[in-house]
Every structure is written in C-alpha cells, then in structure tokens.
Design a protein around this nucleic acid. Structure first.
Lengths: 230, 230
DNA sequence: CTTCTTTACAGGAATCTTTCCCGAAAGTCA
DNA sequence: TGACTTTCGGGAAAGATTCCTGTAAAGAAG
C-alpha cells in the first residue's frame, strides 16, 4: 500500500506538530502549511491525497481555501476534512456545502482524527458506485431499479421523497449532509422549501424503518448522516 | 429473483475468501475451487451461472480450464470472468479469444468485480430473454408470436399498444419504469406523446385483465411496475 | 365508419410542506 | 458544579400541492 500524502493546514504550531507526529506514526507522508496561501500553493503543486484544513486561519480563511481548491479541476477531487472550533456550526455547514468531506471539532483526539481520515480515504477508494445497482448496507438493500427497500429481508414501503432521501444518505455511510444538500439530492437543486421539511421526512423514514431507523443519525446543528458502523 | 450461482476459482485462500465474502453479501450462491481440476468438475456438476477464473493456477492453468469448459456443450454457455495479474495482456487476449466474457486485473476492488459480474450477467440474461418466446409470469402467459395473452387459461383481447405495454412491464417483474420509458418501449424512441396517455393504457389494461389487473402496480411519482411476488 | 389512441379535465387520494409545541441538549453564568 | 437560558430537533396535525384515476370526447388510422 502506497503511503497516502496528507496536507495539514493550521496556524497553531502545537496543533500542526501534534497532527504531523500522529499521522507520520501512522505511515502517512505529511505536508504542512500555516496559512491559506501556502496551503493553496502546496495543494496545487503536490496534489496530496487529502487535506486537513483548519477553518480559522489568518488572512485567507479556511472556507475560502476550500472554495478555491474545489473550483480548480486538478484539486477539486482532493478530500477535505475541516477542523473547527466547537460551536461554529454555520461554518461547518458552509464547508460541507462547498464539498468538504467531513469535519472534526476542536479540541479533538488524534485517534478520532485518524479514524476520520481512514474513513474518508476508504470511502474515496470505493466510490465507484453505479446509480442503479442495488445498495447493500447493514441490513438494508436499497434497489433503485425496483424502488424498493428491504430491511432484514422485509420490504418497506417508502414514498418517493423518502426513498430519495434514504438512498442519498445510504450511498455514503458516515458522511454528514446538511439539510439543503439533502433537499437538492431529493428534489433537484433550486427547489425552494424550508429546511425543516427534511426533518419531517426523516421522522417518517425512521418510523417506517422501525428498529433500523437508528441508522439515520442526527448531527445536531449540522444535518443528518447514515451510520457507518453497525 | 433467483440467486445466481457463481463458481470462484483461485489458488490463493485470501482471495477466495475475499471474493466469497463479498459475493455472498450480494446474495449470490458461491462455489469455490482452488485448482483447475476441481474447477472443471464443479462446473460440470453444478453448471453455475458464472465462473470467476484466475488464470494463474497450479497444474492445469486457467486458460486451459476455460478451453475445456468452452469445448463442452453443457458448460460452453457459462460466462467467464478472468482474473489476471496486471500486465498479462497476452493471456487476457487468449482468454477473450477463447470466449471469456470479461476480465479483471489483480489487485482489484470487490466493487469493481461485482460491477463486472452484474454487467456480464445482465448481458447474458438479455440475450436469453428471446423477444419471441412466450413469457410465463404468475397467472399470465404472454405470447409475442401470437400476440395473445392468457390469464388463468382465459384469453384476453388486447390492442396493439396495450400488448406492448404489458409485455414490456412483464419482462422485468419488480422493475419500475417511468412513463417515458414505457412509451419508448411501446412506440419506439422519440415518439412524442403526453405522459398521460400511458395512464390511459394502464387503465384499459387493468380493466381488461380484471382481477389480475392488480399485478400492474402504480409507483407514485415514478411510473408503473409489474408485480414480482404474487 | 369503426376501432384504437391520445388529449382534456374533474375529483379525490396520497404525499409533502408548514407550523407549532414540547422536551432534550448545549451554552452561560454564578 | 448546578441552575437558568437558549437553541435545536422530534412529533403531530392542518394546509397546500402534486399525482393518479376514470370518464368523455377529439383525433388518427385502417
């Protein structure tokens, strides 16, 4: 297995060092940057396999860095994990909508961070999924061709929107999606509704899924996610 | 849907296990063989729906196995996907010339392999489903040659379009089709009509089919489907 | 002219959205 | 740490909307 190359962006030296130490120990090759400009420069020249990006940066802030990277063809595919202070939900939401892959709130434990990195890299590597093949996740079989969901061998009747939402979430277990991303996925972009309507769909889904409803997790202040581990 | 039966041939235990695990999870019934002789024996006795065949085998090698299977009447129709180390292009070419259906180079991701398997099986089943053989589903017998439908032994008179629609839906029980897919199937692509006209055909069909009309199901917000389970 | 197909439309059912209330979780201040 | 405040999501129910059914009639095809 080739060692993945990871760019870490943070303006605090201790954090940079902490992360670098832990990632190196795990066998990753680490690049660092302590401000947004350097981050963008290194990302463009090195094209790392992943970027750990602090949102709070002097000068160009993290969101802006993410925006720039996601708008360039050669860097847009690089997965980004955001670091943010606890409570900055709005930044997290913006980041996710820009296309960031996950986030970790400070203060964090290196273990958590590494687990997230692994999860994101793994997801990226098997993202070759065909829009129409049945999706097997946990006890679920979600079949877009039949528009039918089986949970533990039992068929579950879902409405159009419920199906779309479940399928969307289940395609990427572990990913957090904002309500507006969910609406976009289910109804197409620019479909104007209140965010809260997503909540109602989620409630309905959980009810119909019964015990397995617990696989749809609420991420307070951010959105929803399909559970990754059983 | 009957679970397809797949024979996996490889001499490395880990690979065998990896593939078996993933295929089982997808609902396939898996047989295994760790050398060419066993592979041929099992293929002859079980007549699986597909064979995943490593080309690099001790004793009788994969190409030879393929040659043997393709030369016997009762096994020649079994589709074969070859596994080969990267770079063995010449073997791959020989294999394809022998009649193998596809190949995957090692190392491979289970997702890729499964996608290929699906594609090959799909192709095969399309070939088999002869456009003209009578279709036997539930209490229906749909005979494209005579353009005649029997329900519970009783003939039902259908108009041209009604017949096309029913036949199209019944060919793939359980699959949902949009109105425009149905129109395309019945009248050829690019035939311009309102989606609503499909509804009317459906209504007519249900009426003529009487009690069995319930096998044509409405999938709200999507289209129609022929019921799979009775 | 007869038969089949398509369009039009009203009625009604299913689904989706909004709204509001409550309780739980997180933040704040002492 | 504990009580108070604020924020956010769950749940229920009313309202709005979308979608399907079935009939009627116009339009094509033979």
């Amino acid at each position: 297995m080739a060692k993945e190359r990871i760019l870490v962006v943070d303006d605090e030296d201790d954090i940079l060092e902490l992360i670098t130490f832990n990632l190196s120990r795990e066998g990753y090759k680490v690049f660092t940057a302590d401000n947004g400009e350097k981050a963008i420069k290194i990302a463009k020249s090195e094209i790392p396999d992943m970027i750990i990006l602090d949102l709070m940066l002097p000068g160009i802030d993290g969101l802006e860095v993410a925006r720039v990277l996601k708008s360039r063809d050669n860097t847009k595919a690089i997965p980004i994990i955001m670091l943010s202070a606890k409570g900055d939900e709005s930044d997290i939401v913006s980041g996710l909508e820009l296309g960031a892959d996950d986030y970790v709130t400070k203060p964090f434990s290196p273990k958590i961070l590494i687990a997230r990195i692994r999860a994101v890299l793994r997801r990226k590597s098997d993202e070759i999924s065909d829009e129409n093949t049945p999706l097997h996740v946990h006890a679920f079989i979600i079949d877009p061709q039949r528009r039918e969901v089986m949970v533990d061998e039992n068929p579950v009747e879902l409405t159009y929107t419920e199906f779309e939402v479940l399928h969307f979430l289940a395609k990427r277990p572990g990913w957090v999606f904002t309500r507006s991303q969910i609406v976009d996925a289910a109804k197409g972009d620019n479909y104007a509704v209140t965010d809260r309507s997503v909540d109602v769909q989620i409630v309905g889904l959980r009810k119909k899924l019964g015990d397995s409803g617990k696989f749809i997790e609420t991420v307070r202040g951010v959105g929803y996610r399909f559970r990754e581990r059983s």
